[in-house]
Amino acid sequence: MSVSKTWVVIIGMTLATLLPRVIPLLLLPGRRMPRGIERWLSLVAPAIMAALLAPELLLVRDTLEGPAFSLFNLNILAAVPTFWVAWKTKSLFGAVATGIAASALLRLAL
């Protein structure tokens, strides 16, 4: 692939990522929104987190290949103690450390 094409892609991607990030924050704050919309927006955060997480857990996929469904994969097993620690301690650091340790130990054990 040529160097110039890579940089054309980078510049195009910069616009494609920057505009959705910045425009709402320049236009929306200070505007009065109906309470219903504010309540809907407060539910966007958990919905996005779950939408990012669920395929990572349930569908093991290679970056370059298509999705492959497999239940009882290591990710699901490692998620069990991670969920538990995250819920009990409310510590983000604890959740990440538990997840990494569980994943490594499971790989050693199985």
Partner: peptide, 25 residues
Amino acid sequence: PEAWGINFALPAMFIGLLMSMLDTR
């Protein structure tokens, strides 16, 4: 890298973030 468990760091992070949101909302 998966032998060190670091491929699970990202899902674990999302789990932690999600749990703190569920707790308050």
